[in-house]
């Protein structure tokens, strides 16, 4: 038992510290003296020096500065999408399950239809048609993202609304909004929290994927995905162009996945 707890704790603290460091750096980006778009022709494809610890890209821009600017983009999109999806998805899911009947039936069908689009395919189509830009990326990914939260919160509320404490609140004359906010929502937080952490990881990957395809953040703004795409043209001469944003992306996604895993294990009473 003790061994198990320490195992979860180790993963939990590792992922929390990796994410906190990134979060801190992202918060500090606006006050850092970064020049992600400054071009120095003599430094094209050069490796690290005292001005840029990660080297330079194909236009002679410092990779460290671009990595930080890319992190800022990634986290902004991730928080934006997860917030919009959480608010929209949970509201729809909770209300639909609580109301029940025809509305719930219709909602289930709509959720099924959105789930029929595999992965980020719908986001690729939407952001491709709407054009690049951070707002369009957030919209496109939210159109895909709300479904997970809606389905999860609906399933939660379906079982909670039958429980005795909700029945007694109702018999005491509590209003629907009071029952939802004080007696149902608090019980859905734990599973939504797990979905939220995995959601952040998938949004970070999806944003980078869209930018990799040239459908996400518009050049010259930095994004990890577009940095990886630019770098894959120069794999032979400057592998650091792919490795730097690639390792950063992998670290963040790995940390978020481990965090989600350890939260799930901690909340799982069966273990």
């Amino acid at each position: 038992m003790i061994k198990c707890i320490s195992g979860y704790n180790m993963r939990f603290y590792f992922s929390i510290s990796v994410l906190s460091v990134w979060l801190l750096m992202v918060i500090l980006v606006p006050v850092m003296d970064l020049h992600p778009n400054s071009i120095v022709l003599e430094k094209i494809l050069k490796t690290a020096d005292q001005n840029s610890i990660f080297g330079y890209d194909d236009l002679g821009r410092p990779l460290f500065d671009r990595l930080m600017a890319g992190a800022y983009t990634s986290f902004t999109v991730a928080f934006g999408v997860v917030l919009v999806s959480l608010l929209v998805g949970t509201s729809i899911g909770v209300i639909s399950a609580y109301a029940g009947g025809r509305w719930d039936h219709l909602m289930v069908r709509i959720i099924d239809i959105f789930m029929a689009f595999p992965g980020i395919l719908l986001a690729i189509a939407l952001s491709g048609l709407m054009g690049p830009g951070i707002t369009n990326v957030i919209i496109a990914l939210s159109v895909v993202g709300w479904v997970g939260f809606a389905r999860l919160s609906r399933a939660q509320v379906m079982s909670i609304k039958q429980s005795e404490h909700v029945l007694s609140a109702r018999s005491l004359g509590a209003s629907h909004s009071r029952i939802i906010i004080y007696h149902i929502l608090p019980l859905t937080i734990a599973p939504l929290l797990i979905e939220l952490t995995f959601g952040i990881a998938s949004v970070v990957i999806a944003e980078a994927g869209l930018s990799f395809l040239g459908l996400g953040i518009q050049a010259p703004e930095a994004s990890w995905g577009s940095m990886i795409r630019d770098g894959s043209q120069y794999l032979l001469m400057a592998p650091h162009m792919v490795l730097v944003p690639g390792i950063a992306l992998m670290m963040v996604v790995l940390a978020v996945n481990m965090l989600g895993d350890s939260i799930r294990d901690m909340l799982d009473v069966k273990r």
Partner: peptide, 21 residues
Amino acid sequence: LLGISIPNFLMGPLLILLFSI
């Protein structure tokens, strides 16, 4: 866990770097 965390647009270039180049 690593496999889940490496997106294919990163895995692809890494494999090309190692096995092709």
